[in-house]
Design a protein around this nucleic acid. Structure first.
Length: 225
DNA sequence: TATGCGATCGTCT
DNA sequence: GACGATCGCATAC
């Protein structure tokens, strides 16, 4: 009856450290790189590696939906404790996935901008949802709207608990972040954010084929944890 | 490869 | 009524 492994983690699920979800978006952004995003769909499970993120933290950040303490039905989830997903519709036709971090009352979110499938089977399932001809890596899931298409993510997953493996979407420990070659640069498409537009709060794995945008005007700089 | 533009609608003013 | 944490297609070179 009592298995010798009872009490240990089941089915190999390796949670991310809880501190990652209570920290600020700026601290969490680079640390989410290399981690595993798991999505359960009717096509089966899709596992992917996080390649690129952006930090949107605090009420001072003019790039954030929560700038100035704007607390609406949409942004409410960001003001709660870290752990849930923040999914919203952009340009009327795409969805973006964020990981909410931080403590109650402090709006923090990390935008997931690119993922890569872990296996060929994962890639096959992502292509099923993505419905594109291109075989270029970045066309599959290099971009926040693209990865949501590829993982069948929409607003129904807003608020989904990313910390628990029973969710339809959750996070698992993946690569050792300290061994990754990380670079940073300005965030993408937030020209309206004035002095916050230039902050180097975009993080990605150096020279990775799934990176969404190669900004020649602002070459990325090495980033060390 | 680079640049320009239209699509499309929830959210907020 | 205006706009956006984007994408895919068209056109140009």
């Amino acid at each position: 009856m009592t298995s010798p492994i009872q009490g240990e983690r089941r089915s190999g699920f390796e949670p991310l450290p809880a501190s990652l979800f209570t920290s600020t978006a700026l601290e969490a952004s680079p640390r989410l790189l290399g981690q595993t995003l798991v999505r359960r769909t009717e096509m089966g499970e899709i596992r992917s590696r996080i390649i690129e993120t952006e930090s949107y933290g605090g009420i001072e950040d003019k790039g954030s939906h929560a700038y100035g303490g704007r607390r609406t039905n949409r942004t409410e989830i960001m003001f709660g404790p870290g752990g849930p997903a923040y999914v919203y519709l952009i340009y009327g036709m795409y969805h973006c996935l964020n990981v909410v971090t931080g403590v109650e009352g402090s709006p923090q979110a990390v935008l997931i901008r690119a993922v890569e499938p872990l296996t060929e089977e994962d890639e096959r399932r992502m292509r099923f949802f993505r419905k594109i001809k291109s075989k270029k890596a970045a066309d599959l899931s290099g971009g926040p709207g693209k990865l949501c298409r590829a993982l069948d993510i929409d607003k129904s997953l807003n608020g989904c608990r990313l910390t628990v493996p029973t969710s339809a979407l959750y996070l698992e420990a993946g690569d050792d972040v300290s061994k990754l070659s990380i670079v940073c640069g300005p965030r993408i498409n937030i020209d309206y954010a004035e002095e916050y537009a230039a902050k180097p709060w975009r993080f990605f794995i150096k020279d990775h084929p799934y990176v969404s945008v190669n900004d020649k005007a602002h070459p990325p700089k090495p980033f060390h944890l």
